[in-house]
Nucleic acid binder design. Sequence first.
DNA 1: TAATTTTGTTTAAACGATTAAACAACTGGG
DNA 2: CCCAGTTGTTTAATCGTTTAAACAAAATTA
Lengths: 345, 345
Amino acid sequence: MMKKICLKDIAEKVGVSTALVSYVLNNKKEGRIKKSVAEKIREVALELNYRTNQIAKSLKTNKTFTIGLIVADISNPFSSNMARIIENEAYKNNYTVIFGSSDHNAARFDKLVDTFLNRQVDGLIIAPGENAVAQILLLRQQRIPFVLVDRYFPDIKTNYVALDNYEASWAATQHFINCGYQKIALITFNTSLFNISERKRGYIDALKNNGIPFDKNLVIEIGNDNMKAAVEHALEHLLALNEPIEALLFATNAIATYGLKRINELNIKVPEQLALISFDKTDALDLFYAPLTYINQPLSEMGRLATKVLLAAIEGDDTITQLNLPAELVIRSSTVMSKKQDSPS
Amino acid sequence: MMKKICLKDIAEKVGVSTALVSYVLNNKKEGRIKKSVAEKIREVALELNYRTNQIAKSLKTNKTFTIGLIVADISNPFSSNMARIIENEAYKNNYTVIFGSSDHNAARFDKLVDTFLNRQVDGLIIAPGENAVAQILLLRQQRIPFVLVDRYFPDIKTNYVALDNYEASWAATQHFINCGYQKIALITFNTSLFNISERKRGYIDALKNNGIPFDKNLVIEIGNDNMKAAVEHALEHLLALNEPIEALLFATNAIATYGLKRINELNIKVPEQLALISFDKTDALDLFYAPLTYINQPLSEMGRLATKVLLAAIEGDDTITQLNLPAELVIRSSTVMSKKQDSPS
DNA sequence: TAATTTTGTTTAAACGATTAAACAACTGGG
DNA sequence: CCCAGTTGTTTAATCGTTTAAACAAAATTA
C-alpha cells in the first residue's frame, strides 16, 4: 500500500492550513474563501488523488453513514432480494451497508450486533430469528436506531415493516376453499416466530370460518435443520393419510422449494392430485411444470419502507412505525376450480 | 442514543489511566499488570457495558478488518451464494463485509470502489464487469489488496479465482455430442468479458474437434438489458430455424432461468425435442420437469479461496495467485443418448 | 548500601479529520 | 483618523483509541 494522502499533504503543498483545506473540500464557509485559493486546493487534491479518510471523519463527526443489515441467510433469495433493495435505498442516501447472516443462531446474531455496534453503524435493519428477543430489547434500551423486517415480536414495541401474514394466509386458504378443496394441509416451521404463527392462525381461521373442521394432522411443523429431509418426510406423511389431502399450503419459499422437488420426483399431478400454494415467490416456482399460485410479498416496498423508517429514526425521529403490508395472491396453474365446488361469492 | 462509554470512563471509575485500561482490554503487557487492577478494569468495563469504538481503533491502527465485496447484483443467486461463503470466511477471521452491487454500470462501480476505499477497507473482492478495467488498473497501481472472482482480465496481472470456463464449456458441448446431438446452439451474452468469451470458445472448439462445422447462426448473443425479452426472442429464433436445433447450452444461470420459463410456456419437450445444459445451478433447475444437466461451479471453493487469497494479500503477501478451478458436469434428465448416437469413447 | 532490574503505571503524541474561536488585514463610514 | 464590519485564514481542541517512552516504586543483586 502506498502512503495515503491526507489533508495535511494538500495543505502543505498549497501553503495553507488543513482547516482551510477541509473547509474547501466540504464546501463550508462558501463565501469566505478566496476563489483562487479554493481552486488551487481542489486542483492539488485532485492531482494528489486525495481521498477523505472516512474513518477519521466518522470519529470526529460521530456518524458513519453505515447501516448494518442482519438476515438469517444472505444466500436465501428472499434475503438477497431484500438486501438489494435496501442497498439501493441506502446508496441513494449515501449510506453503505454491512451485512451478516445470523443463521438462526443466537450466538452468531449477538456477535453480529456486537460487531456492528462496535463499528458505530448509524442503525440496523434486522430480520430477527426467534432467539433474537434479548438483543432486540437491549438495542431498544440503548436507543440504537433499528427496524425489524419480515419478522417482529408483537409484545415488543419496535419499528417494523412486515407482511400481514394472517390476512395473506387466510386469503390463500380461502382461495383453496373457493376452488372446492376441503382437505387442506399446511407445512410450516415449528417456531414461535410471530410471522409464522400468524400464517398458521390465518389458515385455521379461514377453515373455521368456512365450517371446515380444523384437523391438526394436516398441519406439519418442521425444524430448521435438515430441512430437505424434513419437508420430504412431511410431504410423504401427508400423502399417505387415509383420507388423502387435496391441497397444500407451503408456509415459506424454502419449504416450497424442497416440497416441489419431491413432488416432481414422486410424479404427483398438480393440481389434479394436489393443489398447491406457496408463500413468497422464487424463480423456482415459475419453472415447476404447473407454475405455482403464490402469495406475493411486496418485497421492494418492504425494503424501501424499512430503509426509510430507519433513516428517519437515525435522523432523530422517535415515533415508532409498525407496518403490516398487504400481500397479493397470484393465481396460476397449481390451483383450479375443482369438482365439489361450493359457489364462491 | 445514549452517551457512549469510552476508555476514559472506565479509567476514571477505576482510578487509572486510559492506557492501562487499553492494555488490559487488549491483553497486552500480559505479565506487567497487577492482577487485581486488571480484574477491576474488566469488571467495570462489563458493568458499564463498554464497547470498543472500532472507528477510533481503526484510525489509530490503520486497519479496519473490513472487506469490500462488489458483485454485479447481490440478488443474483450466484452472487448471494458467493457472498454467504465469503461472509463465513471473513467472519472466521474477524472481518466484516460491506457489499455493493455494481449493476453492470461503470459509474456505479467506480463510486462503490471509491466509497469502499474512503472507508479504508483492508481489501476488496470483486466480480468485475467488463467496464471495470480502468478501476482495476488503478487499484493495482495503488497497491490496494484485491482479488477478482468469477471474472478476470487475461491481460491484467491480478489475483483471481475463477472457473476454467473453456474446459467446462468444452465438456458440456462434448457431452451433447456424445449423446448424439449435432445441431447444438448456444445462448450467451454479447460481452467482452473473458469468462463468457471462454465459454463460447470452448463450445466452438469442442464442435470443431468433433468435425461438426461451427454455424454462427446457432450462437445468439444477447444484451444485458431486458434480458427476459432477449432470451425469449433468441429462443424463438433458434426454434424457428429451417433445420431445428437439437440441443441448447445456456451460458449463464440467468439466461437459463428465462429460457426455461419460455420453454415451459411453449410446451417444448425436453429432452426429446430439445436437450439442455445450463451453466451454474439454481434451485430453479431442479424444478423444471426434466431436471437440468448443468455445469456445477465450485462456488464454496471459489469463495473460500478468494477470501484466503485476499487475506494473504492484506497480510502483505504480494505473490499473484491466479486460479482456474475445474467445473463438474452434472448429468440429469435434460440430456439423453439420442438416436443418431456416434459411439462415445 | 548502592546499583540494577523488575514491576506496575502514567504521560503524551499520534491517527486524520472537523470546527469554534481567534486573529489579521482590509474596507468604508462618520 | 478611528472604529466597526467584512473577508480570509489560522490556531488549537477534539473525537476514542494505541503505544513508545518515561517514570516511580519495589525487588534483586552485588
